[in-house]
Amino acid sequence: MMPVMQSPRSLEKPTMHYCPGCSHGIAHRVVAEVIDELGLEGNTIGVSSVGCSYNNYLYFTFDMQQAAHGRAPAVATGIKRVHPERTVFTYQGDGDLAAIGTAEIIHAAARGEKITTIFINNTTYGMTSGQMAPTTLAGQVTTTSPAGRNTSTQGYPIRMSEVLAQLEGAVFIERVSMHDVNHIIQAKRAIKKAFRVQMAGLGFSMVEVLSTCPTNWGLTPIKAVGWLEKNMMEYYKLGNLKGKDLEV
């Protein structure tokens, strides 16, 4: 029979502070569902980062630490080395992970740190009001690329999943999207596998989640998912980049 669907146990009940239509809320729920389904609620320590999700420790029911901008993988490393038997994950945005925290994510992956990273890529700095991110697409208008990202002076967007997939220590890397129901279902599958990879002690795992930022993109939530599908998915190809055949 049809299951009763409700808010996952690992998610607190208060309303989240995100803007209407923001993918963060979906990603939070999916992560919480995965943790519930894997029976990890009492065993998980999460790391919040800097960006719109800076205080998502308020939204989960398990232990969490809040990290400085970009440093979540280092903080998670510290936690995991103290509690190797716990499940430790970071939840980071694109400014956090792909700009100021590039060194930390690369080295956590290179060390094969047994942590999982949920990487929210919405091509913009949401919290500071829509500045250009390392993942901002060529030509994309942001508050610091008002004429559109000019690749000759502002460089090219970074495909972090492809970068990290090259590292031996990174064993599972997948890019997913949260723009519609079918993709959310696929995304959850990938996130679940990423956690399983950690539980099996295989190495570093990351899921890059293409997400919307309707507010800073200046679009309605519905138009935002359309923009993601049309523009982001072309540059950031969905799919598994590493660890597709891992049996976990």
Partner: peptide, 9 residues
């Protein structure tokens, strides 16, 4: 699809 866990079955 709901980002705010505002719907249940």
């Amino acid at each position: 699809a709901c980002p705010d866990t505002a719907i249940e079955i």
